[in-house]
Structure formats: C-alpha cells, structure tokens
Design a protein around this nucleic acid. Sequence first.
DNA 1: GCCGCCGGTTCCACTCAGTGGAAACGAAAC
DNA 2: GTTTCGTTTCCACTGAGTGGAACCGGCGGC
Lengths: 268, 268
Amino acid sequence: MVTTDMTLSEGFGDAGDPAAAAPPVSVLGRAFALLGAFGPAAPRLTLTDLAARSGLALSTTHRLAGELVRLGALERSDGWYCPGMRLFELAQLSRPIAYLRQAALPFMEDLYEATHQIINLGVLDGGEVVYIERISGHQAADVPSRIGGRFPAYCTGLGKAQLAFLPRARCEELFAGPLAGRTPGSITDAGRLRRELDLVAERGVACDREETEPGIACVAAPVLDRRGQPVAALSVTGAVGRINQAALAPAVRTASLGVARVLRHSVP
Amino acid sequence: MVTTDMTLSEGFGDAGDPAAAAPPVSVLGRAFALLGAFGPAAPRLTLTDLAARSGLALSTTHRLAGELVRLGALERSDGWYCPGMRLFELAQLSRPIAYLRQAALPFMEDLYEATHQIINLGVLDGGEVVYIERISGHQAADVPSRIGGRFPAYCTGLGKAQLAFLPRARCEELFAGPLAGRTPGSITDAGRLRRELDLVAERGVACDREETEPGIACVAAPVLDRRGQPVAALSVTGAVGRINQAALAPAVRTASLGVARVLRHSVP
DNA sequence: GCCGCCGGTTCCACTCAGTGGAAACGAAAC
DNA sequence: GTTTCGTTTCCACTGAGTGGAACCGGCGGC
C-alpha cells in the first residue's frame, strides 16, 4: 500500500534523461526528485547533471541543492554532489529497519561463519525486495545485491520466501501484470509462480538457481511475525557451484526462526 | 566544515520540547525539522508529538508529514510516524559510505571470526564519530554504539584513532572549547588529550578503557588515504574483561591497513 | 447515555518563499 | 586571444505554502 507510485521514480541508470514525465509541484517533491537523481550508476553528479536528471531548472536546482547541502542531505566536494551523511543518520532511525537488523545480525554472523557465503537480509516493499543488510567475505563474487537495492520479488529467493506467506489475494494483485524476468532462468509464468510459492510455503525455504543472476544461486527463509505474516527474509547466496541448497536449507530456516523468536520477544 | 550547525539539532530524547530556538524558514528546513524530531529515544511519533518536537504548526506538520509519507521519507502505521524506507535507500547511495562499507566488511568479518567481539566502523564528522557499520554476535553486551549514532570523537577509540592523524591545527580547532567527557574515565584535559593523540599516532592504534562507557573497552585503528589523512576507523569493542588490548592491537591494525589497501585500489 | 476532551483532518484567505529567465562570472578548452 | 561550458547571482512575478479556525470522531468520565 505504500510507495506504489514511488517505484516509477526509482533512479535507474539510463544515460539520456527521459524528461521526467510529471514535474513535481511541491518543493519537497522537487527536493526528492533531486535526491532520486542519484542511483547505483550515478553515485555522484555535477549541478548540471542533477538539473538534467531531475528535470528542474538550473537555478532552482542550484538553490535547492545548496539548501540540501546546508541540511546535510547532500554533500559537495570539488563540484560533485552526493547523498549526505545526515540522510544516513535519519534512515537508521527507521524503526522496522533498526529492530530487524539488530535482531538478525547475530544469526547472519552465525550463517556466515558456517558457510562463508554472502548472507542477505531483505524486506518486501510492494512487489519488490529491498536489501537491508548484507554481509560477505573477501571473495568478491559478482552478486548484484546491494544494501538499499531493489529487485522484483518473484525472481529472488528473498522475495519468494516472503511472497509464499502473503495472503493469496495480496500476492495475486501484486503480480497481475506480465512478469518480465531478469534472466533466462526467471519464472515468468504466473501459474508456475503460483506452484513454486505453494512449494515454498510447504517447505519453509525458497530456492533460486540463476533466477536473479546467471551463475548465482541462493537459499532463503522467511521471518514470520506472530500472525504468520512475513516481515523479512534471510538468504545464503553464492556461485551456483558453491551453494548446496539441500544442505543449506535447514541452517537458513533455523536462523530465520531464531530471528523471528528474538523479534517476538523484543518488539511488542 | 560540513554540518557545523547540524549537531545542534540532533534529536536527543529530552521529553519537554525546548521550543526549537530558530524556527526554520524554508520548506526544506521545516521538513528536515520534522525528520530530525525522531531520535534513538523517539523512534516513532504521533502527529501531535511531531508538531511539538519540531516546533511547527499542527496543520503545517500534518500537510508536510503527509507529503513526506507520499514520498516514502516517512511511514505511517496506525497513527505512528517513523522514518521511511526511501530515506534508507537514498542514504545507501552515499558514495563514501557505500565504498567504505564494501571495502571494510570482509575485514570486519575476519576480525569478528577471530574475536567474537563487536566490530565497529566509523567516520569523523566535525568533532564527532558517526558509526557506519557494526557487527556483533548474540551476547547483547550493553555497548551503546548504534549504526547512524554519534559520539564525541575524543572519548571513543574510533575517534582518537582518526584525530591523531588529522593536521594538528585542525584538531586543535575542533577541541578549542572545554571537554565535557562521557564517563569518569573520559579525557577532559586538552593537554592530556594531546599527549594521548601523539601516542596513538606513534603506535597506529587507539585504546579506550571505559572512556566511552563504564565497563566497556576497545581497540581502534585508522584507515588512512594516500595522503595519510584518516577516512575512517575500525574497532574491536567489548566488556573490559574480554578485551586484551595488547593482543588485539596487531589484528585491528592489520585489518585497517587491509581496508586502506582495498580503498586505494578501488576508489580513484 | 450524554458530554467534554483530545488527537487528527479539512478549509481558506493571505503572503512570502520559491521560481526560472537572464545575465554575470570564471576556468578550462581551442 | 576567443569560445565554450559549468556555475553563481540577480530579481520581478506568483502560486505554493502557511496557520488560525472550524470540524470530525473516538474514548473516557460523569
């Protein structure tokens, strides 16, 4: 129910600016258009880029950016703007995120020590998964997940693990449209997705073999609240050859049950 | 040089609102006053609290908060507002933070596996340390650090490790005023701080025995850039009895050198 | 059951913060 | 030297933003 129209404005790395459809009317809208101009592919921008990507007039951009710098939401070093530390501080106060991370990290550490693969924690937002925390070692596997990043839920382990425990109706409405898929392995057929989710619900873990990224596999398990609703999911991710899904499943499931238990006891 | 006046508005948990000194003039200022109303002690607020703590008129608060919700910067569930996920997403695009975390995490994992104590990563912002990442296990030691949290630099290991490598002049100007201290063990004498920092610069590690929090000790080492300037610091933190500073120092120092090496090779 | 209180929401006339075109500036490229 | 490109400053216009006031609805007390 939240940020349904927000996904549209997600700053993807398209070079040519598509003259942002509906120029925002309110100052806040404009300010967030500025912030939204940044993205994984554009972690820092000059004033002119900022104006072009946000669709705002140059002088407006200049003034707003200046103000955002004063407020700490942007930082500027030799002509480049990038998101500032104040945003980071504020973001950490997000209640759900702070609680989740605090509860989950010890279990993520356990999983890491046991597997030495990448351990991810993500939550569902609309039909997408947002990565909240990720721990990894030195082997810089080309796993595309990134804290604060988003992926379509139906083609990631983290997403499927949570979708499977959503009320059926809610899930259906999320995937009414056609499923584009990310890789040749992604599920793009609604019927097959439904059967897959039934299987996940039955087993308590979701698997992903090259559905998110070629060569990458993962095993994920949901963290459920008292009412059985998913609040997050944990996953172990790595190169296909290094992920033995059958062997990892119990560990991931145990860890996510542990997180759920801690959350039940700490959050009222 | 950044956010010098920002520290004033840090939302501490004082119950009675001190009728925020200078009401912000710009819409953005007002919006950030709203966001700044949240704090560790107030992770969620009602509309009325929000208005009181930010010093804005109720109807203004209502409208702005509504807009921030639409933008994803705030979330609302049954009457409570809290910082939203969109902020979190934007914050992760902060170039310095993302690079730092990516470079540092593997080494932090190594330190964790070796010590099973709390591992912190922090950067200097003015005279304060901001915690960027923290990993910990199940023993919920009462260590006060929190991702996104701030402490005065001169009474934390992370802070001293970085201060010691700042140009002397810069350091002096940061601590021109009197040092309040956090605990009986904190350094509050400018002369003693200077000698301590000399020692840190010589050894390459900073120690903290109950200077931040009674019963807590840590060992920290700076991550220096090409020019020898500190960009961050790593620390191992835990209960005094469990931290053998002499034994940990080489490990922490090695890890921070590792991070510096990775950063040198990845960031231009 | 009725009333008063207290959060939250909506309304609306006033006005000042915000806008953006244009011009000045400065440094680097030609 | 001139041109070009990114940035900064200026300023007259105006509609987005403001906040007092009225309204709504649920809860607790009388």
